[in-house]
Design a protein around this nucleic acid. Structure first.
Lengths: 203, 203
DNA sequence: GTCTATAGCCAGATAGAC
DNA sequence: GTCTATCTGGCTATAGAC
């Protein structure tokens, strides 16, 4: 029987590395920790990925390519604006509930190493908001939407979807909720965020 | 002549540490780097603050106590809700434009060490949204505001104010702007964010 | 391919002269 | 209080046996 793709040593390492890097970041992660998580020897990490830096880049790229296409898919679809907003916020929040460390990982590592984004921008699937921008400008000109810059609206959509995951611990304390209640709030946001945005922009 | 408070060695160290820790985080920062920034010897850091951990905690606490009272001041004032929102977003965004590393620093270090927030919660000035919550619930009951949970509204206000600073590099690339243009967008948000929120909640 | 042992480096911390 | 020199531990990376 051929080994399934996820049980090869190489894949086991990548999964373990993903888990550790996303929780601790590039600098905070320890190769020994990754090896332990994968249940194999530390030397094997170097055998397969040469260095910590290269292992990290493999993890980062994979994570980025998981988030980016979702941005594109919705932003550049042919849906109407309200449908886009509903679709995007619902899908994105659902996705991030399943992968809560992902956005913070991406944002944090891009802050640590802003030049890294240059490499990513050459990728085919790097997100763009061109279609979304045209749509918004058009509808604003027609008087169907309140005047707002497409860029600001885009920032708002992303902020409302992602921030509650990034600032989870701070927000939990300020609004004085426990873990269960906070998860409930996040669930509600799957629809709440779109309602909020649409009320904000419709005439 | 008595030395001004900011030129004592102790204060020089704290300022240098603030600058380095906020940019690199607790793990990324190097004691040597902080000493260089302060223009003094590495051994002095230990003479005044004993260890990296204690120096870090001094910086973190000072930073937190800079952000927290602003939250309280607006959220628990006697202003009407719309005034609160306008006042808070304008002041907070202005403040963060001047201290762009601050929110990310706080959020990042709280994620790394969630237990740390327990210590902070015992402080007098730890933010609470009690008054704001009552106000929102009241106005919603009266039918003056669209139905929304105060907690969700609070999260939205903070998200729209802070996220553009945290995700700066990512957002800059996606919306394809240079540094100057992005700063301009942030400037606009001093009023844009409040308009957006108020439109979203008013009937 | 997988392991053990270790080289080599770097950073926090301290000893001790001044 | 301030400095130089050094200790110590931890981490990445590799050499080499199996």
């Amino acid at each position: 029987m051929v080994k399934s793709k996820d049980t090869t040593t190489e894949a086991q390492i990548l999964n373990a590395a993903k888990s550790i890097f996303q929780r601790k970041g590039m600098i905070g992660a320890r190769m020994q920790e990754i090896a332990d998580e994968a249940g194999i020897n530390k030397a094997m990490l170097h055998y397969y990925y040469r260095s910590k830096q290269l292992l990290f880049e493999a993890v980062f790229k994979k994570a980025f390519l998981l988030l980016a296409p979702q941005l594109n898919e919705v932003m550049n679809s042919d849906d109407k604006i309200c449908e886009k907003i509903k679709g995007f916020t619902h899908n994105y929040i659902s996705f991030v509930i399943k992968h809560p460390y992902l956005p913070n990982f991406i944002i944090q590592e891009l802050n640590r190493n802003p030049e890294f984004i240059q490499k990513l921008m050459t990728e085919k699937h790097f997100p763009s908001i061109d279609k979304f921008r045209n749509q918004v400008n058009e509808k604003v000109a027609e008087g169907i939407l309140r005047p707002i810059k497409a860029e600001q609206l885009f920032i708002n959509i992303l902020a409302l979807s992602i921030f509650p995951f990034i600032a989870k611990h701070l927000l939990k304390s300020i609004i004085n909720t426990n873990e269960t209640e906070y998860k409930q709030l996040l669930e509600e946001r799957k629809t709440e965020v779109a309602d909020f945005i649409i009320n904000a922009i419709k005439i």
